[in-house]
Design a protein around this nucleic acid. Structure first.
Lengths: 148, 148
DNA sequence: GTAAAATCTCAAGTTAACTTGAGGTCAATG
DNA sequence: CATTGACCTCAAGTTAACTTGAGATTTTAC
């Protein structure tokens, strides 16, 4: 019943995704997912909401904010259900961001000992103190990763 | 005057570190830094507060929370001003965490395309959907990195 | 010696990402 | 067909990490 085509209930989706019903409500108000209503005003979802949610969770783990995710989702087709290729494009996009971030962390790691442990008290020229500039400059396009 | 031994004012420290005075107050209430007061009840800092703040900022960039930073700071000597070796120990500690996190992100990156872009709609066995477990298991000691 | 700049305290506001609760309706079950 | 569980809405609370503001005192500078 719940498993019928494009007819998923909040409870089912929540359980399946390991999130709370309130989170689904929340995502909907944020415009990250959509639903239609049955006669009784209850939310029903199409199956692709599952994919959307898993993407949201994956992206969050990478450090991408909901706002950025929403922006990226804007590239997805509105009418038809997104296909493999649509999702693959998103993935490619985030992969790039992830590469950048990994490189950043590696740099940080490499300089951590050299800097925190070194004798330099002057932060103006400390390599670890101001690395955000580099990160900021690189991602000059749509900022997906937040430089917190 | 402000540059005299162990006599830094809030304004000076804030400017030098590129943070707001209110942030210094805040860090102090959080127990991350210390100060003594002059006759007029104004805060004065020893020079090592600069190091502390730069470490805080570096750690935050790696994704470490203030609470965790505080815990780690607990290992620093209380009476004497921390020396090179003390800081180096912290660094070493974080470097390990950083390595873990980098490995995690690389794993994520490698599975991003394969997973988001693949045909798997079932999140139960999706490699990207549940990677947090592994991270959680690895850092079984004092949890420095938050698995958000 | 007085006005401007810097500080101080304490309370309250801010953003992200949710969660909790109250009060009320809808649906599935014995 | 009545009860229990699932949903609904809307307002308010929560945590992290700060920021803003008000009202008062200190310092600094001319």
């Amino acid at each position: 019943m719940n498993l019928e085509e494009a007819n998923l209930s909040v409870g089912y989706v929540a359980k399946r995704c390991g999130i709370k019903v309130s989170t689904l409500h929340f995502y909907e108000t944020k415009g990250l997912i959509r639903s239609w209503r049955n006669q009784g005003n209850q939310r029903r979802y199409k199956r692709d909401v599952l994919r959307r949610i898993s993407v949201i969770k994956a992206a969050q783990k990478i450090g991408i904010t909901l706002d950025s995710i929403k922006q990226t989702f804007a590239d997805l087709p509105n009418e038809r259900t997104p296909c493999k290729g649509d999702w693959a494009n998103l993935a490619k996009n985030w992969q790039k961001q992830l590469d950048t971030r990994i490189a950043y962390m590696q740099k940080l790691r490499d300089s951590v000992t050299g800097c925190i442990g070194c004798g330099c008290l002057s932060m103006e020229n400390c390599p670890i103190y101001n690395p955000e500039d580099e990160l900021a400059n690189e991602g000059s396009g749509a900022v997906l990763l937040d430089r917190k």
